[in-house]
Design a protein around this nucleic acid. Sequence first.
DNA 1: CTGCCCTCATGACAAACGTCACCTCCATTT
DNA 2: AAATGGAGGTGACGTTTGTCATGAGGGCAG
Lengths: 203, 203
Amino acid sequence: MKKIQVVVAEDQAMVLGALAALLETEPDIAVCARAANGREALTAVGKNKPDVLVTDIEMPEMTGLTLAAEVRDRYPQTRVVILTTFARPGYLRRALDAGAKGYLLKDRPSAELADAVRRVQRGLRVVDPDLALEAWDSGPDPLTERERQILWRAGEGKSSGEIADELHLSEGTVRNYLSEAISKLGASNRVEAARLARAKGWL
Amino acid sequence: MKKIQVVVAEDQAMVLGALAALLETEPDIAVCARAANGREALTAVGKNKPDVLVTDIEMPEMTGLTLAAEVRDRYPQTRVVILTTFARPGYLRRALDAGAKGYLLKDRPSAELADAVRRVQRGLRVVDPDLALEAWDSGPDPLTERERQILWRAGEGKSSGEIADELHLSEGTVRNYLSEAISKLGASNRVEAARLARAKGWL
DNA sequence: CTGCCCTCATGACAAACGTCACCTCCATTT
DNA sequence: AAATGGAGGTGACGTTTGTCATGAGGGCAG
C-alpha cells in the first residue's frame, strides 16, 4: 500500500519538526517535504506533487490563505488542510474561498491531524464544527477594504495624520473611515475596534 | 541505560502531541506525562518526578513562569526548560529568576529540543544566545507597577476615564502615568507604547 | 535626617480623536 | 435614466489625549 504523501508548512521550526514527527508516527502517512514559509511550500508542492498540504496561516513570504489559492489553481491534485491557532470566522471563510479542504485548530487533540489528512485525501471536507457554527452566525466581514487598511494601521499605534500620509488621503477622510469602522464594530474607539476586528479575523 | 524522563506542558493540544512525538523519536528520552496547563503540569511533576519539565509560557491556569518557580521550590530535582514563541527579553529575565535552566525559542530547529533536554539534565544551562544578548543591552524593565497596570488597560482600548474608575484613580492621574510610560518607552502615543512594552515582555 | 522615588492629585493648554452633516465623482445595478 | 453605494473630501464641534508645572504624602536607603 502506498503511503499518503504530505508536505508540511509552518514557520516555527520547532513546531514544524514536531508536526512532521507526529505525522511520521502514522504507518500510512509519509512527510515528503517541509517548508518554513509559503513560498517554500509552493515550490515543495510543485516538486513533490503530494496528496495533502498541511499549512499554517500566519507565515512570512506568503500567507497560508494565499498559498491555498495558489495550490488550488496550479496543483489541484493536492488538497490543502489549514492548521492554525486562530478560531477566527473570517479566516475560515477565506480559507474555504481559497479552496482549502480542511480547517483544523491547533488546540484540537493531536490525533485529529492524521485523521484529517486521511479524510481530506479521500476527498472529504474537514472543518472544525464549533468554528463552522460560529462563522455562520457571526456574519460576514462588515469592513470595506479601505476601512481594513486604516483600522490596521490605527491598531499599530499610528495617528490619523500618519495614516493619511501613508495612504495619500486627507486626515479628515481617515477619521471618517475610522468613525465608520468603530460604529460598525460597536466599539468606542479605534483601539477597541482594531482588537475586535482582529479577534474575528477581519484584519 | 535509563531514559531521561520528561514532562511536557503546552496549551495547544496539537502542538503538545507533536512535541511529545518529537521527543519520543529520541532513543534516550521518554515522555512520562503531558499537561495542557500549568496546574496539570505541577501535578504531573509531583507524580512522576521527571528529570526535565519542558513548558510553554503562555498557558491558562498557571503561566510557565509561575510554574517554573513552583517546581524549583517544591521539586528541585526537576530542571525546567522554557519553550516559547516569544523572544522577549523580559520573559527570559523572569524565567531565569524563576529558576529555569533552559530558555528555547519555538523557531529554533526541532533537533535543538532534544539537545537542550540532554544538556539541562546534565546540569548545564541552555539559553538562546541571540536572545541572551538582546536581554543584556535592552536593559531592565523601566515601568513601575502602576504604569504597567495602566498601560495594559490602555492597550485593550480602554479610555483614561474607564481605567481611572477601574483602579480608583483620578482621570488626570491616569493620563500622567500614561504620559510617563509613553516617554519612557520613546513612543508617541498609548497604543504604540503598549505595543513596544508587549514586544519587550514588560506587559 | 535628608534625599530620592513612587503614588496620587489638580489645573491648564494644545493636539489628536470621534462624530455629523453635507458635498463630489464614479461604477454598478435596476 | 435613475438609484445605489463605495471612495474621497470639507468644515465644524465637542471630547479625549498627551504634556507640563506643581504639589502633597509615604517609604526607604545612605
